[in-house]
Amino acid sequence: MLFFVAFQLQAQEKNRNYRIGLSYGFGGEFSNTDYTFENHFYKVQLYYKIKESRNFQYEVLVQPEINFGKHQLLNYYFVKPEKPDFEQKRIEYMKMKEVMEYVLNIGFVVRKPIGKMCSIYILGSVGPLITDTETERMSKGFAFADVLALGFTVDYNKMQFDLRPSLRHVSNAGLGSSNAGYNTKNIEFGISYQP
């Protein structure tokens, strides 16, 4: 009986370090004259608290994501004459395109509790992605997504409600023929649960 109680207490202590959640976000490109890009996305989130000090908590965040984007080239001259079939490419890229991205971001969170129910945090994450559409800015296939975010959370019982503005950069690190990438500003709403 004592062994069973000790095992249960240890399991509960480990569960306090984990949270699972879902989030939804949307955003678009910074104002520019070259292209438009707007997106919305869904994430599954797994948080693991690796350390807690007097003033801060440190967490690792793993978040698979599916991103639905719409992109259109605005600057006809962005595609240079050096590119093979540049005239045809210009016509093709000027059309509105739907872009799907499948992402696995891994991030690091530094959280500052404010009272017993609230916290603010900074998040940096990076991860591989697969994109299904070639554009003038990025080749189809393998790329990376980098995210920098500030967030605010409110805890209620075992639930945590999250508001997260972020900046996102997507490019393929020169692994594809086109690598101008996309830069977007986003807002994200999430909910997570501590088992």
Rank of each mutant, 00 (worst) to 15 (best):
3 F>E: 08
5 V>K: 12
13 E>P: 09
18 Y>M: 10
19 R>H: 11
19 R>D: 10
20 I>M: 14
24 Y>I: 02
24 Y>R: 02
26 F>P: 01
26 F>S: 05
27 G>W: 00
29 E>T: 08
35 Y>C: 00
37 F>D: 00
37 F>L: 00
39 N>Y: 00
43 K>D: 12
46 L>E: 01
50 I>C: 12
50 I>E: 06
50 I>R: 09
51 K>N: 15
56 F>H: 07
58 Y>L: 10
62 V>Y: 07
63 Q>T: 04
73 L>A: 02
77 Y>D: 14
79 V>C: 06
82 E>H: 07
84 P>K: 13
87 E>V: 09
97 K>Y: 04
98 E>D: 08
98 E>T: 08
99 V>D: 02
99 V>Q: 02
104 L>R: 12
107 G>W: 10
112 K>Q: 07
113 P>V: 10
115 G>C: 08
118 C>P: 00
118 C>G: 06
120 I>N: 06
125 S>D: 10
127 G>T: 08
129 L>N: 07
131 T>D: 01
134 E>R: 13
140 K>F: 07
141 G>T: 08
143 A>D: 03
143 A>G: 11
145 A>K: 02
152 F>H: 09
154 V>M: 13
158 K>P: 01
166 S>T: 05
179 N>E: 09
180 A>C: 03
180 A>D: 10
182 Y>S: 02
185 K>S: 14
190 G>N: 05
192 S>E: 03
193 Y>C: 06
194 Q>L: 07
194 Q>A: 09
